[in-house]
């Protein structure tokens, strides 16, 4: 036996806390499992030949990736919030918006309910304040 750690993190508490952050979905194992094929589909767009095939016919390309109907619908609608709900991770999904010629800022902004212009202006004015969006329960 090696020396016992003095203090262990309780994994259930560790994971449960993530749900207390407003407007945020942390990429936990549970989400990673749910989004496995969605994320792997997005990865496939790192190859130019795949991007071409995808551009020619989005829906047909998606047929090869074992996606749920909700995942397919979210991709076709370029609804990034819905993709993240379905287990997508933004770094994987960046391959999709990059293939569409979109920037990180445009994609991130699209998830906030603001227009592209409003979001860009908020960033220039110093970004979103953490005030009130740190904790749902705590309300701070």
């Amino acid at each position: 036996m090696t020396e016992k750690k003095k203090e262990r993190i309780n994994i259930h508490e560790y994971l449960a806390e993530f749900d207390d952050i407003p407007g945020t979905r942390v990429f936990t194992a549970q989400r990673a499992r749910k989004g496995y094929w969605l994320n792997q589909f997005a990865m496939s767009l790192m190859k130019e030949e795949n991007r071409q095939k995808f551009k020619e016919d989005n829906a047909a390309y998606l047929e090869d990736w074992n996606l749920t109907d909700a995942q397919k619908k979210a991709v076709l609608a370029r609804d990034y919030n819905a993709m993240i709900d379905e287990g997508g991770n933004v770094y994987f999904l960046s391959k999709l918006f990059s293939a569409d010629g979109q920037s990180f800022q445009k994609a991130a902004g699209s998830m906030t309910g603001m227009t592209e212009q409003e979001y860009a202006e908020m960033m220039i004015a110093g970004g979103r304040s953490p005030e009130g969006v740190r904790s749902k329960k705590g309300g701070y």
Binding site: G23, T24, N81, V90, G109, M111, G127, R128
Partner: peptide, 9 residues
């Protein structure tokens, strides 16, 4: 970079 809280600084 994600969700309604995107843009936090």
């Amino acid at each position: 970079l994600q969700g309604p809280r995107a843009g936090l600084i």
